[in-house]
Design a protein around this nucleic acid. Structure first.
Lengths: 214, 214, 214, 214
DNA sequence: AATGAATGAGCTTTCATTCAT
DNA sequence: AATGAATGAAAGCTCATTCAT
């Protein structure tokens, strides 16, 4: 966690530093990210940086945390209450929300992706093991509720499904951007339609599997 | 690709170098891996290294390629011909083979994992985009064949399913090792049983989805 | 010397600062000691520190001085008047007192030891040359008195002897702690006996030298 | 220990580096010594330094070792065989040798002094605990031989005496330089005479103690 | 009197790569 | 083909002290 000194800073400066950090961590993998560049872009002195943060990792973890919180907040705003709709409708909204978030906050998303697919294993453990379980737990929760409501096949292993969904929720969004937005896509009109169509295909698979129904 | 000089080397020396490389790349993330350590462990001179390889990445990519090939070969040995069984039985064997491979070649697997979860995006693109499509293509192929055989729900998007399966085939193996082998597991007897049970749960989900059947 | 502001401080705060300083200087060599840690432990602000002291050295020298004074006071309390006993008995008590002081005030002793064996030569000169002469002068004084009383061999060079005794009085105490108290010694009973025996051996050598008597 | 690369260097360059190191370590306490200055004065690149040595300490320890060896060699050249003279004559020569060495190799001496009176405790332990026992053992050896020859008072504790002599041999040389050579002394003529006179006073005390003979 | 943010030169060490031999 | 010394930019981080408030 940043030191108190950081939070005492005028918010403008604080934002400048966070911005510089976010740019750095989204542009470079953690191991190649440079405090030097960060302080340069934030226009603060080396000494100051270490007055605010214990070290590079301190800032990094803080930004990761902010990104996560931001995403959760974003999703919460988008999502209709779980109780008020079917499990698969909720899942649908969740994926749509994920895609929208990545569209709206590409920087934050990039940092998050770097982490989730991050190469620094020990660091990943440190940060990610705090966040993967969170995501996992989230899916576990709604799966359990859905099971109670009788929406799920009683045969399936719920824990395993939660794990699958966690991975899924990342890779499926990746796939969307690879498939449908390889270049900067300016056709805003068809966009939502496209997302919906895509997500629905996905949900269909989750729901029914891929085997032929007899 | 390594230079011709590398392939002219006596095979013993060549193996020594590859072994040193594999140990390094499985022990450290690419960005932290050190050519110094590699040449030290391989007992060659610095100059020689650059006479065999363009640079660190050259060796890295070569080792990744070898690991991939090794895995494919391993799977081919294990797998019954696709034509001789149902798609889902084949998939089942594939996952079992994946788990067995990771058990048998932990070093190679570790390198592969590092790559797939690798933080160096540009490198990842360079290497992985050569290998992901391979894996993707593989699933696409068998999915198409399965579709022709009428084993798949005609509603599903086959491309998307191939993508999902690719991701799946990695994360699902991870989950196995997290869930069932947190510590060194000495109970060899029940092992195969365990793998089978696990894989079957997984296949069930892929096949039928998670929604309640009516 | 600390500034007047320091002496104007409520004694509680003053003590807190001195305590923090003593802990720091006994825990770290001067060059590694940190004003940051000191102000943190003393719970004062950075600015305040420099309102009380010119710089780190200022506090350091002041603490050294206090330690020295404390030791002198301690010894004075322990020592029977020089006039009332023989020189060698006095010396004996002095050494015993030295051992006891180190036992009782390990913190202060440690600072003193760091100084005497201190690596920062210019600092040492600055501080120690104020205190070594003091110690030296002390021995010179009693040696002179002893000479007058006819207790000393008239052949010896009294200045040199004073110098020797100064060094001696430190190293001999070190040796005691190395030899007799390598670990935490709980045998309190035999302790005094042990000290006495040890000191007596030492005094014997000072008195008679090491050559065989004819 | 320096790496092989260092010993492969042309002796001229090797000497340049050692010289730069010696100058640095004699001019600054270890903690304040700077590899930057060393490489600058040695006119080598930063990278090269770390090709030759593991780190700063590596060079430091090597120089200390060289200084010690040099001193031992110097003394061996000066000293008449212990068997061929009395213990006290031998001691006399030893002290004279010590003074001469310091005169001839002031740089090496300074480094040695810094160490023996060195402030970096852990470093001191590492280096000094290899060398103090050496010196201690040396005195212990000759004391034991002298005891066998009947030159010593059987009352004295030989171990303690060895410890005392070790300290002594340092502080007594210090005293000489403080007392007799406060400034650069050019009067070479009287010099030897002076040393002899000084050492003899010292030996007298060691031999006979300071108490009045009855 | 008290504060604490700001400073920036300095530190040691790492590294992949080059190139003369 | 083989060598291994040389490179130097860049890294993360520490620190005592200053000074505006």
């Amino acid at each position: 966690m940043p030191k108190q000194t950081f939070f005492n800073l005028p918010s403008k400066k604080r934002e400048r530093i966070l911005q510089a950090g976010m740019e750095e961590f989204s542009a470079y993998p953690y191991l190649k990210s440079s405090t030097n560049r960060i302080i340069e872009n934030a226009d603060i002195s080396k000494g100051s940086f270490y007055q605010y943060f214990d070290n590079k990792k301190d800032l990094y973890k803080y930004i990761i945390k902010k990104a996560t919180d931001e995403k959760i907040e974003f999703l919460n705003e988008q999502l209709v209450d779980f109780e008020k709709q079917s499990f698969f409708d909720y899942l649908r909204e969740l994926f749509i929300g994920g895609i929208k978030f990545k569209k709206q906050y590409p920087l934050l998303s990039k940092i998050g992706d770097r982490l989730l697919t991050g190469d620094n294993e020990s660091l990943k453990k440190e940060v990610y093991d705090e966040s993967r379980p969170k995501s996992n737990q989230f899916f576990l929760n709604i799966l359990k509720k859905a099971a109670v409501r009788g929406e799920l096949d009683p045969e399936i292993d719920i824990e395993m499904t939660a794990y699958m969904l966690t991975d899924f929720s990342i890779s499926i969004i990746d796939y969307y951007f690879k498939q449908y937005e390889p270049e900067n896509n300016d056709r805003v009109v068809e966009e939502l339609e496209q997302i919906l169509e895509y997500v629905d295909k996905m949900i269909y698979i989750m729901k029914n599997g891929i085997a032929k129904k007899c």
